[in-house]
Computed example of a mutant assay.
Amino acid sequence: MSQKMKAVVCHGPQDYKLETISIPKLFPGDVLLKVKGCGICAGDCKCKAGAKMFWGDNPWVKPPVVPGHEFYGTVEDLTPEAQEKYQIKKGDRIIAEQIVPCWNCRYCKSGKYWMCEVHNIYGFQKDVADGGMAEYMRLSKNAIIHKIPESLTHEEAVFLEPMACAIHTVNRGDIQLNDVVVIAGAGPLGLGMVQVAKLKTPKKLIVIDAIPERLELAKKLGADITINPLEEDAEKIVKSLTEGYGCDVYIEATGAPVGVIQGLNMIRKLGRFVEFSVFGSETTVDWSIIGDRKELDIRGAHLSPYCYEIAIDLFERKLLTVEGIVTHSYSLDQWEEAFDIAATTDSIKVVITP
């Protein structure tokens, strides 16, 4: 096997290049993954564009780094320690969770590894966590690896990371049988959340988005009602369906400030507001609505702890689908075109297939 490989390399905002670099060297406990697919996340697009959360005063991204955290592949090589730990062998289909926990901080030691204080995530920190937009990648001894059954399609396997995030987000909403649930944003994550929320059988599931085609897909995937806020008064509609009170659960998946403000106005008193988004700009709101006026339960949702196995199981049982969600596929050589279309509303989920 050649010692070189193709990879997209991030050197900074708007400074991404396709390069030939060395195939990662393995250390004890490591696995070499032959990447079969890597999705482009909205966070990847915002990182490339220079969003503050990635490139602030103390940049979280440590270039040069290979981007990509929505990956899966097959075992190309592995150390004896990794074989014993993960019970995997060459050729097995696997996926690693997007975070590389340190396993030493208070969060990792208490089982809350997804909030690891060090917080290395594949695709953002050089050396430790180069990502999946490459022919090969190194999964370190700290990785959390899951086997992927052969019954899962390529599209399902490459969408496991977003779907696991969707499951965690919906779980954070603590949806009850009598709840009216609103999901704002019908992008890849939002469409995953629609399916998972439907499995919770709420009283009514409402999806809000400004793109008609995505609303149509949301309806097919389980939404009871869809609302285009550019054409209809979303708050008025939701209030009319809830005797004027507002929704019980609001899941914000737009990544736009307007989605936050809309949700705070739309949700009932004592409601549960779940935030899962990467924002390109700050949101300003009168916080009185959270405490003095509504006493809301504001919950964040980050990554996908303990949800990969659930996602795999739900795909195996055909309770979830990626049909209509994974819309585009490009080779590594076409990475620029892939990023360009991923940053538009002409795509939903774009995948790079090395």
Score class of each variant (00 low, 15 high):
E295D: 15
T242V: 09
G91W: 02
E76W: 10
Y306V: 14
Q83K: 03
D248M: 09
K294P: 00
P229D: 11
K239M: 13
P212K: 01
I208F: 02
S347I: 11
F273W: 10
I227N: 02
H119M: 15
K318S: 14
L215A: 07
V260E: 12
I99G: 09
G192K: 01
A338I: 15
C105I: 08
P24S: 04
E309M: 13
K36F: 12
G73F: 07
M163W: 07
A253H: 04
E316F: 13
G37S: 03
Q3P: 09
D15R: 07
G39D: 02
H168K: 00
S288D: 15
L241V: 08
Y107L: 08
K318Q: 04
F27C: 14
Y245I: 11
T283P: 06
E235D: 13
V128A: 14
G300F: 13
K17N: 15
G192F: 05
S2A: 10
A338V: 14
K204V: 12
I289K: 05
S304I: 15
R293C: 14
I267Y: 00
Q98Y: 09
A134G: 11
T79I: 07
D346G: 07
I99S: 04
N120L: 11
K236F: 12
F276N: 11
A7K: 01
Q98I: 15
Y250Q: 01
Y308G: 10
P64S: 06
C108G: 01
V9E: 05
K90W: 07
I88M: 03
